[in-house]
């Protein structure tokens, strides 16, 4: 084990700013990509669902009229 306490862990032997600066931005980028992609997916599912429903409705209307 390299660390005797949490404060020692966070200070990273005086390089904490640089080590955590790199890891924090990496986490933000990865989380951001996951978020953007799942947003794109949700929007797509919604619009597809609506489109399919509206075509079904149109077909019903054609059949009844």
């Amino acid at each position: 084990m390299n660390w005797n306490s949490w404060s020692e862990f966070f200070s990273m032997g005086g390089y904490g700013f640089y080590v955590w600066g790199s890891y924090l931005v990496s986490v933000i980028c990865i989380a951001g990509e996951i978020w953007l992609l799942s947003n794109r997916w949700r929007t797509l599912q919604k619009s597809l669902g609506q489109r399919v429903e509206s075509t079904i409705r149109e077909k019903k209307n054609e059949a009844t009229s």
């Binding site: 084990m1 390299n2 862990f9 990273m12 032997g13 390089y15 640089y18 080590v19």
Partner: peptide, 17 residues
């Protein structure tokens, strides 16, 4: 990376990047 790997003799903890 953070708990098993030892400290670098030249770069200290900064090498963990």
């Amino acid at each position: 990376g953070f708990f098993v790997a030892p400290t670098d003799f030249q770069q200290g903890e900064a090498y963990r990047i």
